[in-house]
Every structure is written in C-alpha cells, then in structure tokens.
Design a protein around this nucleic acid. Structure first.
Lengths: 133, 133
DNA sequence: CGACGATAGATGCATATGCATCTATCGGGA
DNA sequence: TCCCGATAGATGCATATGCATCTATCGTCG
C-alpha cells in the first residue's frame, strides 16, 4: 500500500510540476502559496499544521519561497515566532499559477471521473488523520 | 488533489519507516528489496519499470542498497546493462523486514477497513497508469 | 531576580525524487 | 570498416522529506 501511494504521489506530482514548470514553481510550493493565500498571515507552526507538513520541511520550503521574494516573514511580540504571509510578488505568482493548476486539476478530474475523484480525496484525508491517533 | 495525495503519502511513509526503523531500512528500500525478491535477477531498467520509478532515482537507491551489501550487480553480454539481484545478506534483511512490514500493513488495513483499502489500491494504480497515456 | 522546563524554529545529516545532460556501448548502414 | 543514431545507466543540480539535535526565547516557580 505504501508503495502504491508513493507511486501515485510521484506520478501526480510529475503532472502538476509539469503544468507549473513555465512559472518555475513546484507543486509543493504552490500548495504553500495557496494555503497562505487562504489563511493570510499565519504562524509558521500553524501553517505546518494546516498542511500536515513537518516543521523542518516547511522551514526549507519557506526559505525557497523567501529567496524568490514570494513571502514576507516577521516576528510578533514573541520573538520565537515567525509570522508568514504572501508578498505582493507572491500574490502575483500565485494568481499566475492558478490557471495552470486548474487546467491540470480539471484534466485529471475528467480522467478519473467524479466518483473516484471524491472517493480518493476522502480516503487520502482519512489516511492523513490516522496518524493523529 | 496533488496536495492530498502527497500528504497521505508522507503520513503513510512515516508509519512504514517507523515500523522498519529497527532494521535501518526505509519504505522505499523495502519496496525495492521486495520487487527483487519476487523478480529474481532483473535488468535495472526493468526494475524501474516495475516500480514506476525514474531510472535516476533507482540508480541512487540501488547505490544505497549496494553499500549495505544487500544486492549484487553484474553486467550481461551487453556491457551497458546492469543485472540486479538480492545478495544473501539482502535476502536475509528482506526476511527480517517482512514481519515488521506485515504488522504495519495489517494495522493500517484494520483501521481503514477492507473496502477502503481495496478501493484505495485500485485508485492509486489507476493514477499511476494515467501518465502512460 | 534567577534557574529551569517548555516552546518555536533552525541546522546537520541522510535519503527520495526527477530533469537535463553526459558517458559508454550497441547495432546498423554507407 | 567507420560513423551515427539509439539505448542503458550515471552524474550534476535543485528540491522534498523527516529525525535528532541545537539555539533562542518564554513563562514560571522559588
């Protein structure tokens, strides 16, 4: 099962990466931009929680986004915290990426069919929740 | 969708990696050993085909397995080819890993339920096949 | 106020992943 | 025979991933 999901994950990632390649954006990075676009300014920790992503992984992805100038970081009163949000450039990059992402998403959805699509979303979420128990 | 599958893949990988940690074996590596155990001696390219794994990724995973002495490599008549098979130590390592893997697998299967389990396997395989078209 | 455990991230290290490109070898035609 | 396109892997580079561990800061308790 692990092998099956990893294989599917690799395949899918290749599809989305390819769609986003014109922008030099990876699927993972798009996901982070999207989360930021929805959440506004958030603590790095909360962002990790949202994406079920290890905080150390997030640190490095944010480093990349930061290098491209797509996010702003600042500390609040608690100097340990990092508050993250999209920069102007990040907002723009995200908006440019959305159509490409939509296109890949729609094509995949068509190929899988509505039923499988929804079932798959449900099951993957269930797996993600498993680990919390 | 890509984010969902990647998230599930991360979660699942953590579960399997943790189960195999006593042996210092990663889920990916176990998958390769398993494939070799089933296939016997195979061309590196065929192995990649089997696992739907990029050949460059496979090269490095095999490098790790080789470093541990778990596989043997040799060339056939065609000097470009690499023929891979489990070594004695690799066979042993695989046999030690199977029970740990089974345990993780069974636990997960119980939590998901038979129906979801099978559906998930089916869907992930379908996604993997999508890219071939 | 000062020491101490708790918390938020960062860093070192190893592996996983794939694209672009390179090297070695093979097989077939001129 | 020699050259040339095709094929099997290997390598450089960048990112993704997570464990163990470290650092800085916070809150609290004596």
């Amino acid at each position: 099962m692990c092998a099956s999901i990893r294989r599917a994950s690799r395949t899918l990632t290749q599809i989305y990466d390819q769609a986003l390649r014109p922008l030099g954006l990876r699927a993972t990075q798009f996901t982070v931009l999207q989360a930021l676009s929805i959440a506004g300014e958030v603590l790095q920790g909360d962002l990790g929680q949202m994406l079920a992503m290890d905080s150390t992984t997030l640190t490095r992805t944010l480093e990349i986004l930061s290098r491209h100038g797509w996010i702003d970081k600042r500390t609040g009163e608690d100097l340990r915290e990092r508050r993250i949000r999209l920069s102007k450039a990040g907002q723009l990059q995200f908006e440019k990426a959305v159509p490409l992402w939509e296109k890949a998403q729609a094509s995949l959805r068509r190929k899988l069919g509505e039923g499988q699509w929804n079932a798959l979303l449900k099951f993957t979420n269930e797996i993600t929740n498993l680990i919390k128990e």
